[in-house]
Write a protein that binds this DNA or RNA. Structure first.
Lengths: 217, 217
DNA sequence: AGTAATTTTTAGATTAGTCTAAAAATAATA
DNA sequence: TATTATTTTTAGACTAATCTAAAAATTACT
C-alpha cells in the first residue's frame, strides 16, 4: 500500500498530538497543527481510516492503529536521524535543521535509513535531545522533566526541549542553555513563574514559558 | 517563483534529451522518457513556457531558457552529489543509487547541497563517472569515448557509462569492467560489432550494445 | 433540560497533474 | 503535389488535496 507525502504528514501529526493519557486527537487540533482547514482534515481522516491507519468515528476524534503508529514512528526515526546527520556531519546548527528534516523524512528507503543510522553510530537522541526510535520502532524515552517542575535546590543536566522553533533554540544558544549543561535552581518567582538558576557559576533568569519548554534529566 | 517536483523532472529530462548539436527536444521524446502521455507533456510545456523556463512554439519542440538550464543543472548537481554520498559514505553499490538519488535531488536547500559537496571533498564525478557541476553550475565534461569507437590496438581507462540501468551496471560489475580499469582493444568483429579486449592480462568479449555504453578516457 | 457556542462534517468548487479520444499540424512518400 | 502516416495539440474528464460556506452534531452553560 502506497502512502503519500501528505498522508505521512497527517500520521506524524496525529502521533505527536496524542499523549499516553489522552490518546484521541480531534480534528481542530490537527488542522491547527498542519495549518489546513478542518474540512480538509475530515476528508483526509476518512481516507486514512479507509486504509486502516487510524481509528475514526465521526465527531469522536481519532487514534492511530498499530500500523498507523508504526508508520508514524518510522517517519520520526527518519526525521531525527537526518537531523543528527545535518548537525554532526554537515555542521548545521541545531536551530537550522528542522525544516530540512521535514523534507528528508519523506525519502522512501528503509535501506537508506538503516545505513545512515549505522554511519552515524546508532545515535540515541537527535540534536534537540529527542529519542530516536530503533530499526524495530522501539523508542526508549528517557524521562525528562521541564525546568518549570523542578524545586529550589534541585539540579540537573539540560537534555532536551519541548519546542523546536528557531526563535526558541536561538535564544537558548545565545544564553548558553544548551544540551549537556548542568543547572541548579536558585529561586522560583511565584508572581510570574520565572526561575532563577545557576549554571557554570553564573546566575540566569528564565521566564515560565522558557522553563516549561526546557527539559532536564 | 516556486517550482514543483514534477516541473523539476521535466526540466531535467529536457536537459538530458538535448544535445549540443540538436538542442530542440520534441514532445514524444519527453513523454517516452517520463512515461507519461504526449497530451500531458503538452500541458506541462505550456506551463513551463509561461514561467519562462523553456522556449516553446507549438509543434516545434522546446529548448531550455538560461534560467531553465540553470535549474536543470542544479538538479543534476544534487543528483550526482547524493550518489557520491550514498556510495562513498553509506557503502551503497553503484547500481543501487539511481532511484534513491532521483528522490533526493528534489530536496530544496542550496545550503545543504553546498555543505554536502564540501563534506564529500568537492568530487568531480559521480560513481558512474558523470561530471558534477560546481556551485556556479559550471560543468567540465571530460571527453570520453565509447569503447565501440576505439580502434584495434588502442587502449584507455574505463571512466564512465552511458546507460544507468541496474542490469547494465550489474553486468559490468560481474565482468569486472569497472571504473578505473585499463583496457586494450584486441579485435573488432564486423559481423555483429562485438569487441574483444584485454584487461588485467585477461581476454573479454563484449557486445556492440555494451561497447556503445561503456566510456573510456 | 433547553439554548447557545463550538466543533465537525457535508456540499460544492478549485488547482496540479494526469488520462483518453479526437482534431489539427507537420513530415514522409508515392 | 496529393495522400498517407506521424506527431502534437485540444477538449473533456479524473484523482488528490485543498478551500469556503452552510448544515449537523456535540459540548457547555444557564
Amino acid at each position: 500500500m502506497t502512502i503519500s507525502f501528505t498522508e505521512e504528514n497527517y500520521l506524524k501529526t496525529i502521533y505527536h498530538l496524542s499523549s499516553p493519557d489522552k490518546e484521541t486527537v480531534n480534528t481542530n487540533a490537527i488542522s491547527e497543527s498542519l495549518r489546513t482547514k478542518a474540512a480538509s482534515v475530515t476528508d483526509m481522516l476518512r481516507k486514512l481510516a479507509e486504509k486502516e491507519l487510524i481509528n475514526y468515528e465521526k465527531y469522536q476524534g481519532v487514534t492511530l492503529t498499530d500500523s498507523g503508529k508504526a508508520k508514524a514512528i518510522t517517519i520520526i526515526r527518519k526525521h531525527r536521524l537526518w537531523e543528527v546527520f545535518l548537525v554532526d556531519k554537515l555542521d548545521f546548527k541545531w536551530d537550522e535543521v528542522h525544516d530540512l528534516a521535514e523534507e528528508l523524512e519523506h525519502i522512501h528507503s528503509e535501506k537508506l535509513i538503516n545505513k545512515l543510522d549505522e554511519f552515524l553510530g546508532f545515535p540515541n537522541v537527535d540534536p534537540h535531545g529527542d529519542p530516536i526510535p530503533d530499526k524495530n520502532g522501539v523508542l526508549k524515552s528517557p524521562d525528562l522533566v521541564p525546568v518549570s517542575k523542578m524545586l529550589v535546590g534541585e539540579s540537573g543536566k539540560i537534555s532536551g526541549v519541548r519546542e523546536h522553533s528557531k526563535e526558541f533554540l536561538q535564544y537558548l544558544e545565545k544564553t548558553g542553555l544548551i544540551l549537556g549543561q548542568s543547572i541548579m535552581i536558585k529561586e522560583k518567582i511565584p508572581f510570574d513563574g520565572s526561575i532563577i538558576l545557576s549554571m557554570e557559576e553564573k546566575i540566569h533568569t528564565i521566564s515560565r514559558e522558557v522553563a516549561k519548554n526546557l527539559l532536564v534529566s
